[in-house]
Amino acid sequence: MKMKPIFYSLLVSAAGWLAACQSNNSVSPALNAVTFANLPADPPSAGYNPTNGAPIGVTNKFTFFSFSTGAIVANTDSATNKWDLGFRGTTIIVNGGTSGSGSTTAQVITGTFESYNTAPATGYSPDNLASASAPYAIPTGSGRGWYNYDYTTNLITPIAGKIILVKTTAGKYAKMEIISYYKNQTMPTTPTLTPNDRYYTFRYIYQPDGSTNLK
């Protein structure tokens, strides 16, 4: 199961290479879809309080991620433009608007990862906590953004067909799909107080050349 995404990205890149050769005027090199596994988004160190459901042992701090480096950015750099997205629980912030010093914008669109080979030119917005209806560029809440929350099992499932498109502070485009909210992509099958949640696994394609090509 873990081999598959790697195999798939090889396949995608091979296909892209083939296409590039055939057209013989490679606009840009084929991009690889990268899977980032187990980004900790402030996971509770001791699970959840059984009486009130509150997470135990959380820092309330965001984990920052940069597409250009493909790595986590230290929390001490929160006031810089080094990061693009921040993750804490089910909330994802962008480094723009009310959330950060940068000018990152994002949008959630419906489709498959493969169907967005070109980033749309419009539709992006920064975070705006002053807005009651849309405080985040990537909306929070069950069924409103990227996930569904089942209040009978307390489980979070990423909605199929929700792709997040990001325009970074540097004006570069990226697309990402959240694959799992649970550590090692293992969602519990029964409700548990230690679900190992708040670990994002997502795949993305980042276009460093500034074009809208995301293939």
């Binding site: 598959k4 995404p5 419906t110 498959t112 990862f113 199929a160 067909g161 696994t201 795949r203």
Partner: peptide, 18 residues
């Protein structure tokens, strides 16, 4: 119309399909 229900997640790869 290609709305939110028109996708599913491949059980093996967890990637979205139409």
């Amino acid at each position: 119309s290609g709305g939110v229900y028109s996708y599913y997640r491949d059980p093996a790869t967890l990637e979205t399909k139409r």
